[in-house]
C-alpha cells in the first residue's frame, strides 16, 4: 500500500513529461511529417487486403501470362515474374514489415529489460554474469548472429524475427541496467527494501516501470533498423518464404529480372527506404526532444 503511493508519485510527473514531449515533437517539421507518414503506414498495414486492387495476387494466385509487365493503369507498379500485381504486394508488405518489426523489438524488450533490471538491481556477481553474457552477444556482428540463428532454425519469417530478437536484446539490457543502478540508490526503492519487499517485486514493480521510458525511446528508434535487418535476412533467403510479399524477398527475387524489369526492385526498395526513413526520423526527433541538454532549446 505504502509503496504503491510512492510509485504513483513517481509516475505522475512522467505523464506530464510525456504530453510535453509529444508537443515538442510535433513542433519539428521533419518529425511531424514522419509521424504523419507512420500513421499512414499503420493505416495501410491494417487495411492492406482491402486496399489492394488485386488481393488474390498477395498469397494465392499466379498469373504468369501477365509476367513482368511495366507499370500501367491495371498494374500501378507493374507485375512480377509470375504476373502478380506488385502494387498489391507492396501494400501488403507494409503489414508484414511493421508486424515483424514491432514483434522483433517486442521480443528483444521482453528478454532484455528484465535481464537489465536484474543485473542493475542485484549483487555484483549476478550483475557481472549477466553483463558478460551481454558482452558476448554484443561482440557478434548482429547480422552474422542473426544469419547463424536463422540457418539453425530453418528459413522462415518467424525464425528470422526470433533470430533478430536474439541478437538485439543486449542493447536493452545495457540501457536498463544503467537506469536500474541509479534507481537502486533512490529513496523509494530504498524504502521498499527497508519494509522487506521481496527482491523480485522490487525489480518488477519499482525498477522496471521507472526505467521503461528511455527504453521505449530506444525501441522506437530501433524499429527502422530491425525492419532493414529483416529485409536483409529475406534478401539472403533466410527470412520470408515465397509467395509471402515481404519487401526484402521481393528485392532478392527481382535481382534476376533486374535488367528486364526495373520496377520490380524499385518499388519494394522504395517501400523499405520510406518506412525505415520515417521511423528513423521519428527516432531522431525523439532523441533530440528527450535529451535534457537540447530539450528546452528547441
Amino acid at each position: 500500500m505504502n509503496h504503491q503511493v510512492i510509485s504513483w508519485n513517481a509516475i505522475a510527473p512522467r505523464i506530464k513529461e510525456f504530453r510535453e514531449t509529444v508537443y515538442l515533437l510535433k513542433r519539428n517539421k521533419l518529425t511531424r511529417i514522419a509521424l504523419l507518414a507512420i500513421y499512414a503506414l499503420i493505416f495501410i498495414a491494417i487495411f492492406a487486403p482491402w486496399l489492394a486492387p488485386h488481393s488474390t495476387h498477395i498469397m494465392m494466385d499466379t498469373n504468369p501470362q501477365d509476367k513482368l509487365l511495366a507499370p500501367c493503369t491495371q498494374y500501378l507498379f507493374g507485375t512480377d515474374e509470375l504476373g502478380r500485381d506488385i502494387f498489391s504486394r507492396v501494400l501488403y508488405g507494409t503489414r508484414i514489415s511493421l508486424q515483424t518489426g514491432l514483434l522483433a523489438v517486442g521480443i528483444s524488450l521482453l528478454i532484455g529489460v528484465p535481464l537489465g533490471a536484474i543485473a542493475g538491481a542485484s549483487e555484483w556477481y549476478v550483475d557481472e554474469a549477466i553483463m558478460r553474457v551481454t558482452d558476448i552477444f554484443l561482440s557478434f556482428p548482429g547480422l552474422l548472429l542473426a544469419i547463424a540463428i536463422a540457418a539453425i532454425l530453418g528459413p522462415s519469417l518467424q525464425n528470422a524475427m526470433l533470430a533478430i530478437s536474439i541478437s538485439w536484446w543486449p542493447w536493452y539490457t545495457r540501457i536498463v541496467r544503467g537506469q536500474a543502478i541509479s534507481l537502486r540508490e533512490r529513496q523509494f526503492v530504498k524504502a521498499a527494501k527497508a519494509i522487506g519487499t521481496p527482491h523480485y517485486k522490487i525489480i518488477f514493480s519499482h525498477i522496471i516501470p521507472n526505467c521503461i521510458a528511455p527504453v521505449i525511446v530506444q525501441a522506437s528508434m530501433d524499429i527502422g533498423g530491425v525492419i532493414l535487418t529483416i529485409a536483409a535476412l529475406s534478401f539472403l533467403g533466410l527470412g520470408a518464404q515465397p509467395p509471402t510479399p515481404e519487401w526484402g524477398l521481393m528485392i532478392s527475387t527481382s535481382r534476376t529480372y533486374f535488367l528486364s524489369a526495373w520496377w520490380y526492385s524499385f518499388f519494394p526498395g522504395m517501400a523499405i527506404l520510406i518506412t525505415v526513413l520515417v521511423f528513423n526520423l521519428l527516432g531522431d526527433g525523439l532523441r533530440e526532444v528527450l535529451d535534457p541538454k537540447t530539450r528546452k532549446k528547441q
Binding site: 494465392m60 515465397p242 509467395p243 534476376t256
Partner: peptide, 26 residues
Amino acid sequence: EADKKMAEMYKSDLAKIGVEVELRGM
C-alpha cells in the same frame, strides 16, 4: 529461380484442389 517459380505455380494449383502447401527454399 526456376524451381521457385515452379513451386509457386504448383502451390497455387494444388490450392485449387484443396491441398495446402508451405514452400521452403533452402
